[in-house]
Design a binder for these strands. Structure first.
Lengths: 208, 208
DNA sequence: GTCTATATAAGGATAGAC
DNA sequence: GTCTATCCTTATATAGAC
């Protein structure tokens, strides 16, 4: 039991260090925008050493994304697990997702890279391995919220309302009506939940 | 008047042909994923010829995006211009945006590339030149729809509800509850408008 | 496990002929 | 306006020493 050789621990350590240090690079510049040299320099190794740990660049990228998603997806699923009313759980999830997207820019950007990826193998691998579980949970919540609405569309809308806001973060700077507090995830979460609960235009005279 | 030399017409033609043929390449693979050689091959020129028309790759990309956005943004602004009630104009815009995103994948993807771009010069240029006008129009509509809601957030939400749906198009294939008709822009537009008008969960017993 | 060295291809960009 | 030819840099990946 204590015989576990140190070598293996070391190996794991280097491997994970590579994954962690390549995350911000891939998040910022995408697959084509990052070279093995860039990663080697960030880790403090030579390029050749990377090939000891990963078969090729594609595998390194795939493992980086999966590694980065694993714990975050688990955290998001936890937020959905509670046993309050569906609306309470929705509020909890929306707030959590907003907090995560606000604080973890790398994760947000990796999500976007995955959505844009045209490499079918990479995309289907990541979609099934990383998005599916989370989507299922929100999908189920959506059908609890309103059994008469298309749960698939509603789940997508919930993600879209939160994620797109942060996706557009950099360009929002140039748009009118921008106020600093809109970057506060609590403010966005309240806006999204109000919108989903139909509080929009409730003071409005139009036929609804 | 007839003296306009043919040479100039030709020049414009080639230039625009380059822009049009590089659009699907940049849309699919992004700035770093496309080489000048790729573009030259698509147009049927040699690489060197491209440098007669554009100073460098960056300029070619910038011009491609601007060219591609110009007419589409104009079309979207037209959709907002009518003089019906705010809700009617919203419906018209949402349907139009959904149709455009469904039919013009290149445009959809270029939007995503611009949002992801970390080159500040490129991003601020495109944000101001291309997104701002359109956002202003939706922002104004949003404050008409509900003067009590943060119009900036609401405008962003309207874009997010439509755009994110199509952004996630490729990964949605692997998600539960997926039905072909969800790809129909009319179906999505109705879903989004219903959601914005607060028809969600109207049959629900929860406190609202 | 990591290094040096290198093979081999692909990238952006320019010079000068036509 | 477009070509050929070429320069120089950067890229992925491997071989073999340590």
């Amino acid at each position: 039991m204590i015989r576990q050789p140190i070598r293996i621990i070391r190996k794991r350590k280097t491997r994970e260090e590579i994954l962690e240090l390549s995350t911000p690079l891939f998040a910022r510049h995408g697959y084509d925008g990052v070279s093995m040299r860039d990663i080697a320099a960030a880790v403090g190794l030579t390029q050749a050493a990377l090939y000891y740990h990963f078969a090729d660049k594609n595998q390194l990228y795939l493992d980086t994304v999966a590694y980065e998603f694993r714990e975050r997806v688990a955290a998001l699923k936890d937020m959905l697990a509670g046993n309050g009313t569906p609306w309470k759980r929705l509020e909890c999830f929306v707030a959590g997702l907003a907090r995560m997207m606000a604080s973890d820019k790398d994760f947000l950007r990796l999500v976007q890279w995955v959505l844009l990826d045209t490499n079918e193998a990479r995309q289907s691998t990541l979609a099934k391995q990383v998005f599916r579980d989370m989507f299922v949970a929100v999908h189920d919540l959506a059908s609890e919220l309103d059994p008469h609405v298309d749960a698939h569309l509603l789940a997508m809308s919930i993600f879209g309302l939160v994620i797109f806001h942060f996706q557009a973060g950099a360009t929002r700077k140039f748009m009118p009506g921008r106020r600093p507090q809109q970057d506060n995830p609590e403010v966005l979460a309240r806006h999204v939940c109000d919108l989903l609960r139909g509080r929009l235009a409730s003071a409005d005279g139009e036929a609804r």
